[in-house]
């Protein structure tokens, strides 16, 4: 328990406070860190967290008014449940199969036909997920339980298609973004003067107060400007697109930022040894090393770096506590932290 207190009770390292949260969004305050750190976290949450989205559509029948490619695009944008994706699915490019298989994809099928006089609306709930799939069911959050609208059909029109959903990141296509938006703000009183407010007569009168203003002390009248001041509190508002809950988005963001950094360390530590497969370029970022050599390199987990193992590569985030404890408990790493 001592260890626990020294880690959690300390003021060292970045601090996090949750202001407001539910299953779809989270408002958090990051403090005791610099702008670059907070911004890196924001950027990685926007672009580099894997989710699952429809990537291939095999159309058998489409007699609706919507052209095939239009329909495919709409299907791609439907958020699909991606919780714990790293434990359940691998990237197709890291898989042994030819085009897709159940290890690297989830199949959803859609069959809808309008027979009556009234038009039929096809919703995300009408996508039927393949039996035994561990993830990838359409996200439905509306009170009616319908999900997003895919298409509308008139009498006699029909849709019959098969969708292949794959794992990917938003850097490749925005449909894989786990966030709808990430709000980012700091210095609500503009004490640092990073913003020049445009005004007619008086900026104070004309501009609304930041919603975070009450969280910081207002400036004192006539206070001299502090040229050395840097921002240290950051207000993030994470809005989930539905595929992942906000806490998992944050945790995954942290994890993939760590992976990036670990990859840098790994490059240098492997240069001194015989080339044992590192630099095997096709390995996807965040490829789960523990999945029995399905990934490319297979080097990561045990790679020695300054006597310790690379603090990365072990399983999904669920298994983090084990190496997390070692990482924080070990003197080597605590010393490294203190340097930062």
């Amino acid at each position: 328990m001592d260890d626990y207190d020294t880690i959690y009770g300390s003021d060292r390292g970045p601090q996090i406070t949750i202001k407001e949260a539910d299953s779809r969004h989270a408002q958090i305050v990051l403090s005791n860190c610099d702008l670059a750190f907070a911004n890196a976290l924001r950027r990685i949450m926007l672009a580099e967290i894997p989710t699952i989205a429809i990537d291939i559509v095999e159309i058998q029948t489409n007699t609706s008014v919507i052209p095939d490619e239009f329909l495919c695009h709409r299907l791609g944008m439907v958020p699909l449940d991606s919780t714990n994706i790293d434990d359940k699915l691998i990237y197709t490019r890291d898989c042994f199969c030819d085009q897709y298989c159940e290890r690297c994809s989830v199949t959803l099928s859609l069959h809808a036909r309008c027979t009556g006089e009234d038009n039929v609306t096809v919703y995300a709930r009408d996508l039927v997920i393949a039996e035994g799939a561990q993830l990838g069911s359409p996200v439905i959050n509306d009170p009616e339980g319908q999900g997003t609208v895919i298409c509308k059909l008139r009498k006699g029109q029909e849709l019959r298609l098969k969708c292949i959903a794959k794992k990917g990141i938003a850097k490749e296509h925005a449909k894989w973004a786990p966030t709808a938006a990430v709000g980012f703000e700091y210095d609500p009183w503009n004490k640092l003067r990073h913003i020049d407010y445009w005004y007619e007569e008086d900026a104070k009168e004309e501009w609304p107060k930041s919603k975070y203003a009450d969280w910081e002390e207002p400036p004192i009248e006539g206070e001299p400007f502090n040229y050395d001041a840097v921002p240290s509190r950051f207000y993030l508002d994470i809005e989930s697109a539905g595929s992942l809950p906000p806490d998992e988005i944050l945790q995954q963001g942290i994890k993939y930022l760590q992976e990036k950094l670990a990859a840098v360390i790994e490059t240098f530590s492997n240069k001194n040894e015989t080339g044992d497969g590192f630099g095997d370029g096709v390995r996807s970022p965040g490829q789960d090393y523990s999945m029995g050599g399905m990934g490319g390199g297979g080097a990561g987990y045990e790679t020695p770096y300054q006597g310790g193992r690379t603090p990365f590569g072990g399983g999904g985030f669920g298994g983090a506590t084990e190496y997390g404890g070692r990482l924080m408990g070990g003197h080597k790493c605590v010393a490294a932290v203190a340097m930062g």
Binding site: R12, G13, T17, A21, I254, Q258, L261, A262, P311, V337
Partner: peptide, 25 residues
């Protein structure tokens, strides 16, 4: 550079643990 990477990994690990706790609370 390596020290910077190491310290950031440590910082992120601490952040992750704090987040887990804060989220639970």
């Amino acid at each position: 550079l390596l020290a910077a990477c190491q310290s950031l990994i440590g910082d992120l690990q601490m952040l992750s643990q704090k987040l887990t706790r804060e989220w639970e609370l």
